[in-house]
């Protein structure tokens, strides 16, 4: 993680999102991601972190504020999102692999159809990427034939096949069985070590701590704390951050514990 430079790749300024029904998901978010940096966003469910990720590649239109990619604004009426999205890859919680295509077909569809890469070249690159995540032997398989962890690794390299400058990872381990989480996170850590710029939303605090250059805590559509991972996890500044981190440390409630509990009549279940 020494590859971080000062050049900002993503700059979010006062980003706002209010749904037509009046619900405010993002209430003025400022965030900068520099080249080679891994920024991890954490926060309680519904705090707007996934919405924020989706605004960066235009899957969720803004209702206020601005986003710049490499210094040029990408929010506004003239934005060609097709072009922006080729530079900003995204990996989803539920993979979104194309079930009618083989693994290799998933990896080559966008390079061939969107970027105009010759099929043979796209396939060669696809096979290289699969080998990198240990799935070279699955090139001809269909997504249905893979485990969740394998599918998510395919989804990651599918995004990489477009050679994006930034990768958005939206709770990519949230629908995985616990024993498959590691194989996916290992891939992400390797990407981080190779200098990939990433904006990551996760509930895995251990992962956040391991991979992040910076941790951002969001609550109710705002950034409430931004810190280096060690500082965030060992010495959080805000009460909100302390309260949030406490939810991850399970301690047995003292109210119901203790020897007198068994002496009580079974009043409640």
């Amino acid at each position: 993680m020494t590859t971080t430079t000062d050049a900002p790749v993503l700059e979010l300024r006062d980003v706002r999102k209010t749904y037509p029904g009046g619900v405010t998901a993002l209430d003025g978010v400022d965030l900068t991601v520099r080249r080679g940096e891994v920024v991890v966003i954490v926060g309680p469910s519904g705090c707007g972190k996934s919405t924020l990720l989706r605004t960066v590649n235009g899957l969720e239109p803004l209702t206020g504020g601005a986003i710049a990619l490499d210094g040029s604004q990408i929010t506004g009426s003239g934005t060609r999102w097709e072009t922006v999205r080729q530079r900003v890859g995204m990996v989803f919680q539920s993979y979104e692999l194309f079930n009618h295509l083989t693994v290799l077909g998933n990896l080559t569809l966008a390079p061939v159809r969107v970027a105009g890469t010759p099929r043979a070249k796209a396939e060669r690159r696809g096979l290289e990427l699969l080998a990198r995540v240990g799935l070279a032997d699955k090139a001809g398989s269909y997504p249905r034939e893979l485990s969740g962890g394998q599918r998510q690794r395919v989804a990651i390299v599918r995004a990489l096949a477009m050679q994006p400058e930034v990768l958005l990872l939206d709770e990519i381990t949230a629908s995985l069985d616990p024993e498959m989480v590691r194989e996916v996170l290992d891939v992400v850590v390797e990407l981080a070590d190779n200098g990939m710029t990433m904006l990551v939303v996760t509930h895995e605090m251990g992962f956040a701590r391991a991979v992040a250059d910076r941790v951002v805590l969001m609550d109710r559509g705002r950034v409430v704390e931004e810190a280096e991972p060690e500082e965030f996890f060992t010495n959080p500044r805000s009460d909100r951050a302390r309260a949030f981190l406490q939810t991850f440390t399970y301690t047995r409630s003292t109210r119901r514990a203790g020897p007198d509990v068994s002496a009580e009549p079974a009043a409640e279940g």
Binding site: L59, T83, R85, M90, E96, R113
Partner: peptide, 19 residues
């Protein structure tokens, strides 16, 4: 959400529908 997956790779809505 399959369309999101397609769009996120830079496909147009038409390409997402077709492919």
């Amino acid at each position: 959400s399959q369309v999101d997956g397609a769009l996120s790779l830079g496909m147009s809505r038409g390409a997402a529908l077709r492919h």
